[in-house]
């Protein structure tokens, strides 16, 4: 009886958290819209969502690693490596259909992710350090494979450009991809055994071991998924901006982490939802893209970003302290009974 009431209360709070982000999004939208009505035009939304789409699914991959209590700092480099490799392959074989290129990029990303996963799962190296190291390594490989030559607009085939610009069922491809990935990962994380194991493992690694969850496999799985999504994102990235260069997506890992944190993913592991991350990405995307609209000078962008993340984190901390406090009180009551 009692335990259920804790649970329902907790669930309520978690729900409130996402509700909170939603409210913030609405407030931001209203404020920006009042300042500049252009904000509500379909065109503006399309730009914003195209930007947020790639960020969204890479952040979902990032979320899985954070939920296990790890982190993947290499996503930015994987985006660049996959994008550059695919760009070069396209330059050398312009006849290849875009679908093959997308698959290739995804496989490259998967490979990078599996390496991360093996090092973390089998090698027992801390995720932060592993991905810090592979971040440099993959970034360096971008320079090596490109031989210091960018893939530029002229090299990109018509079909490839269409990947980002085309539509499926009236929705832009990027958004479509993000939606599908979000739905699939929601199902995977919430309704499959493996998905629940990821949360269980992140919540309490020792306990998870006792109930027979294989930590090595979980680690390889999440980093492989994160790498795969980043590799897929790399192809779309190149298609969106029409270029691949050595510093493509530099610092992108920070943006994905920020979207997760804003979306309520706990850096301690075990907590986080796909929906929250989507909202977090959306908020992040709106803020990044609407500063120009409300006339904030570009130089403020970084500080504003940092400030928002900080607020989200502090909000989260205060909230979770309160939850912990409440639970402790209830437990005391329970013990007394």
């Amino acid at each position: 009886m009692n335990s259920r009431s804790y649970k329902s209360r907790l669930r309520e709070l978690v729900r409130r958290r996402e509700f909170g982000i939603f409210i913030i999004i609405v407030i931001v939208m209203v404020l920006v819209g009042l300042r500049n009505p252009i904000f509500f035009t379909g065109d503006n939304w399309k730009d914003m969502l195209m930007y947020a789409s790639i960020l969204a699914f890479i952040s979902i991959g990032q979320m899985m690693t954070i939920v296990t209590g790890g982190i993947d700092l290499s996503v930015g480099s994987v985006v660049a490596l996959s994008g550059m490799s695919v760009g070069i392959i396209m330059r050398d074989n312009p006849a290849l259909p875009p679908v093959v290129l997308i698959l290739l990029g995804t496989v490259f990303g998967l490979g990078c992710g599996i390496i991360n996963g093996l090092l973390i799962g089998k090698g027992k190296v801390h995720p932060l350090i592993t991905t810090l190291a592979t971040m440099s390594i993959y970034r360096g490989l971008v320079v090596v494979v490109s031989r210091s030559r960018w893939v530029v607009y002229g090299d990109i085939t018509k079909g490839f450009k269409l990947i980002a610009r085309g539509n499926i069922l009236g929705i832009n491809n990027l958004m479509f991809a993000a939606l599908i990935i979000a739905v699939v990962s929601y199902y995977f994380l919430n309704h499959t055994r493996k998905g629940r194991e990821i949360y269980a493992y992140g919540d309490h690694q020792e306990a998870a071991k006792f109930v027979g969850i294989n930590s090595t496999r979980i680690n390889i799985l999440v980093y492989a998924l994160s790498g795969m999504l980043a590799g897929f994102g790399g192809v779309l990235w190149v298609s969106r901006v029409h270029t691949a260069q050595a510093n493509t997506a530099l610092g992108y890992e920070m943006q994905t982490i920020a979207s997760c944190v804003i979306g309520g993913v706990s850096i301690f592991g075990g907590v986080g939802s796909v929906f929250g991350v989507l909202l977090g990405t959306l908020l992040f995307g709106i803020i990044l893209n609407s500063l120009e609209l409300i006339g904030i000078v570009d130089f403020w962008k970084l500080s504003v970003q940092g400030f928002i993340i900080l607020v989200a984190v502090i909000f989260d901390a205060v909230l979770s302290h309160r939850v912990a406090e409440q639970m402790r009180k209830q437990r005391r009551v329970f013990d007394a009974e």
Binding site: I71, L128, M254, I257, A258, V261, I267, F268, V297, F299, W300, K301, L302, S303, V304, Q305, G306, F307, I309, L310, V313, I314, D316, A317, V318, H321
Partner: peptide
């Protein structure tokens, strides 16, 4: 922030990383 609010340092300093870098840009701009 790290000690008072008991937030993991990596998250706090991630946010501060952007914030402090931004201060430089705000002051000197282009």
């Amino acid at each position: 922030i790290i000690t008072r609010l008991k937030i993991p340092s990596i998250v706090v300093t991630l946010a501060m990383m952007l914030f402090y870098r931004g201060v430089g840009y705000i002051l000197l701009g282009d």
